[in-house]
Structure formats: structure tokens, C-alpha cells
Amino acid sequence: MILTYITYFLAAFVATFGFCVMYNVPTRTILASSISGAFGWLVYYIIALQFELVLFIGAGAASFLIAFLSQWFARRYKMPVIVFAVPAIIPLVPGSSAYSMMRSFIEGDSEAALLFATETFLVSGAIALGLSLNSGLFQVFSSRAFGRREKRYLP
């Protein structure tokens, strides 16, 4: 059981690390991004696959956690949030279901294709919602703490 979690953690860590290098993330923040990516996937795995709740909730909670960690790292390293958030949501993004959807369409299996399409749009909607929910909360609470601030749309 514990071994499964460790395996998934390491796999998500490595996957995020690979995309960090691909996206040319500043060298000193690669570890932080990879750790938040790994924790995000772990949350997604536990909620969506272990407790078998709907994918939407799992992906939303995971991306919310990633956004939260990214905000924290962004303050610590004094860098914009996307440096941490963009690589970290890579394990969650529905690239594989987008590909499976198109492949099923091409092979003529429209039913499977529609299933994959629903999954693609729900998961990416959930990720976007989780990220913007976090930045909304962040703005509400930080504007009081730091005095008047110009509104802006964080990721």
C-alpha cells in the first residue's frame, strides 16, 4: 500500500521534472515544482481512483493544492506563480484522453471517443477552476492584509 503511494509519488515527480527541463524552468526552482506536481498527483490518485469520487472533484482538488503550493513557493523564491504551477499540473492535464479521443474518432469508435471527450473537457475545466479558485481566494485575503492593491488575474 505504502509502496504504491511511493511509486506514484516518484513517477509523478519524474514526469514533472522532465517537463520542467523541457520548459526551461529556472534551475533553483525545479525541485519545488516537481514536489508540488508529485503531491498534486497523489491527491488526484487518492480522491479520484482510491475513493472513486468523480474525476472532476479529484482534478479540482489536486489543482487547488498545486496552486496553493505554487503561491507559497512563489513568495519564497520571489518568482511568478506560473513557474511553479505550469510544470506541476502536467501529470494532471488530460493529454492522454485528448489523444485517445482523437484516435477513437479516427478508428470509428464514436462512443468511446465521446467518453474520452467528456473526460478531457471535465478534467481540464476542473484544473482551470481549481487554479482560479485559489487565486480568487488569495486576492480576497491578501488585499486586506497588504492594503489597497490593483486587481489582477493570477493563474
Binding site: 513517477a11 515527480f13 514526469a15 529556472p26 502536467i90
Partner: peptide, 24 residues
């Protein structure tokens, strides 16, 4: 300049692909 060479980028993409098989 980018932080990583082309070989490093390709190797890390390969690592990521290996990791994704476990995740799926």
C-alpha cells in the same frame, strides 16, 4: 541561453514518458 542542452532536454522527456506509464 537555455539552462539545458538538447540532449538533456530529450533525456528528461524520455524520463517523463517512463514515469507516465506508471501513472496510467
Amino acid at each position: 541561453p537555455t539552462n539545458f542542452t538538447r540532449l538533456q532536454r530529450n533525456l528528461s522527456m524520455a524520463l517523463a514518458c517512463g514515469g507516465f506509464t506508471l501513472l496510467f
